Measured scan of single mutants.
Amino acid sequence: MDVFMKGLSKAKEGVVAAAEKTKQGVAEAAGKTKEGVLYVGSKTKEGVVHGVATVAEKTKEQVTNVGGAVVTGVTAVAQKTVEGAGSIAAATGFVKKDQLGKNEEGAPQEGILEDMPVDPDNEAYEMPSEEGYQDYEPEA
């Protein structure tokens, strides 16, 4: 019985440690998101679009440190934060509304985080759909 109880105690310690790591990862992701939003706020009209992409990228980098179902929630929060940063930029006159959601080359930025393969159960990952990809044929 002692062996059984000791095993359960060790398992509990492992769960607590994993929860603490997840909590730490979420806190880091939130900190990076805040950094990115402050970065966007300090940019001029020309830099705002690039700044919004930076927020998304920093958040995406930190999301990889967070495991399990938390990833889905962090990704949703990050996307809403990026959308909010863009709205703030438009409201303050840093950028025109028609410039939001495009990178410096004018290509749409939507789907940055949505296409990231995420499995809350950590069982399997699927690649994003290939609808947006084109076949590449090298020139002879």
Rank of each mutant, 00 (worst) to 15 (best):
V48M: 12
G7Q: 05
G68I: 08
G41W: 14
A56Y: 09
E104N: 15
P120S: 08
F94L: 09
T72W: 09
K58F: 09
G86I: 15
A124H: 06
P138D: 08
A140G: 09
V16G: 03
K80D: 02
V26L: 13
G31W: 01
E13I: 01
V63T: 04
Q79S: 04
H50C: 06
A27W: 10
E130S: 04
D115F: 04
E123K: 07
K23S: 02
G41T: 04
G84S: 08
Y133E: 08
V66I: 10
A91Q: 11
A107R: 08
V40G: 02
E126G: 11
Q99L: 07
E13D: 11
K60S: 12
D135N: 07
P108S: 03
D135A: 06
K12L: 15
A27S: 07
E137N: 10
M1A: 15
E110V: 11
T44P: 00
V95S: 04
G86F: 11
V63I: 14
G51W: 06
K43M: 06
K45F: 14
N122Q: 03
V52I: 12
T22P: 00
T59W: 11
E104Q: 11
N65W: 14
T72H: 09
S129C: 06
G101Q: 13
A69M: 08
K12A: 14
A89R: 07
V77K: 01
K32W: 05
V71W: 06
F94G: 03
E137T: 04
A11Y: 10
E57C: 08
V95P: 12
A78N: 02
M116D: 03
K34E: 00
K34W: 12
A90K: 14
V15P: 00
S129H: 07
Q79L: 12
G101L: 15
A107C: 07
G14C: 11
E139W: 08
E123M: 07
L100G: 13
L38H: 04
T81P: 01
K58H: 08
A107D: 14
E35C: 04
V40K: 00
T64N: 06
V71Q: 04
K58N: 08
V66Y: 09
G84F: 10
S87T: 04
Y39K: 07
D121L: 06
V16C: 12
E130D: 07
Q24P: 00
A53Q: 10
M127K: 07
N103T: 13
V48Q: 00
E57W: 12
E139Q: 08
T44Y: 10
Y125W: 13
E46T: 15
A90V: 14
P117W: 08
D119V: 02
Q62R: 12
K43V: 11
A17V: 03
E46V: 09
K32H: 10
N103A: 05
E46H: 05
G73H: 10
L113K: 05
A29H: 07
S129P: 11
V15Q: 00
V118Y: 07
G84Y: 14
K45T: 02
K80R: 10
V15L: 15
F94W: 10
V66Q: 02
E114P: 10
P108K: 10
N65Y: 09
E13F: 06
A89C: 13
V71F: 10
V49P: 02
L38W: 01
L113A: 06
H50N: 13
A85K: 01
V40I: 10
V55G: 01
P108R: 11
K23D: 00
V49F: 12
P128G: 02
Y39A: 09
E57M: 11
M127P: 07
K10P: 00
K96C: 07
A18K: 01
A69S: 03
E139F: 09
Y125R: 09
A29S: 01
V16K: 03
A27T: 11
E123I: 10
A30N: 00
G68F: 15
L38T: 06
T72L: 02
A90D: 04
E114D: 03
V52M: 07
D2A: 00
E35K: 08
G51K: 11
K102G: 05
D135F: 06
V16A: 11
V3G: 15
P120F: 10
K43N: 02
V40Y: 05
V77L: 11
V16P: 00
V49A: 06
